[in-house]
Design a protein around this nucleic acid. Sequence first.
DNA 1: CGTGCTGTTGCTAG
DNA 2: ACTAGCAACAGCAC
Length: 281
Amino acid sequence: MPELPEVECLKRGVKKAIQGKKLKEIRFFREDLRYPIPIKKIKRECQGESINSVKRRSKYLLWEMDRFSLVIHLGMTGNLIKMNSRQPALHHTHAIFTFIDSSSDSTEKEIYLHYIDPRRFGMIDLCKNDELSGYSFFVKLGVEPLQKRNLGEYLFMQTRRSSRSIKTFIMDASIVVGVGNIYACEALFRAGIHPGREANSLSQEECIILGSQIKDTLKDAIKAGGTSFRDYRDAEGNPGYFELSLSVYGRVGEKCYSCGKIIKANKISGRTSFYCDNCQN
DNA sequence: CGTGCTGTTGCTAG
DNA sequence: ACTAGCAACAGCAC
């Protein structure tokens, strides 16, 4: 489900639901996802703590408490959904977080966030707040596309010595985070750049166009609530609608909305790439 | 029934 | 130094 826009939308919903609330109880239903879950440590350090803020870095969610931050990644199929029950409702429910208002001890207003992940490519981890900058999963991350000023100039600099394809390049999280297969395809279409072009063959002008199209594509997707390609839902269980705006992704064999030629699909570094031969050069 | 895809990321081998 | 390929897994379309 998640590329940057989906995680951003989920973050906003989760933030609304739990920020300022007290994490009363955490229940785990298995010991590992992609990596082992430090269950004892998480229970010890987080139960009874208040959530000061909910943040996103790359595709990681951060629940910041006084000393620690819970780090949650959704992998390919993970989700966090508000439910009415503290009982697991689905087969692939791996954790349930119970929140209460910090001010009251009543059980009336408990909130239950269920972590669900069929494929278990996600992760749940804990990191001290003052160690986040050196946190192993964060140290190698590239820039946040929506925060980075002059993203295009940055891409131009970074691409100069790279012979890999531009699509693989912008999907590389050590260069720029959050751009997965869907948004890489869409941003390249909007920029009129063929996904198979060698990164270092792009002119400065093309890089600047690509940089701004990456930002616009991500922003548009966030506005639409993300892309519910298969089963993405936000924290409230609502789907996103950006798939209605997809120009090329998943449209192989269909007509390009812009020129009417047939959309093609090709494997680039093992990932299916959708593009219009006519509009993208 | 297989078979071959799928939104991620980090490690490995070349 | 860079890059492609793979592994971890469940579900779904064909």
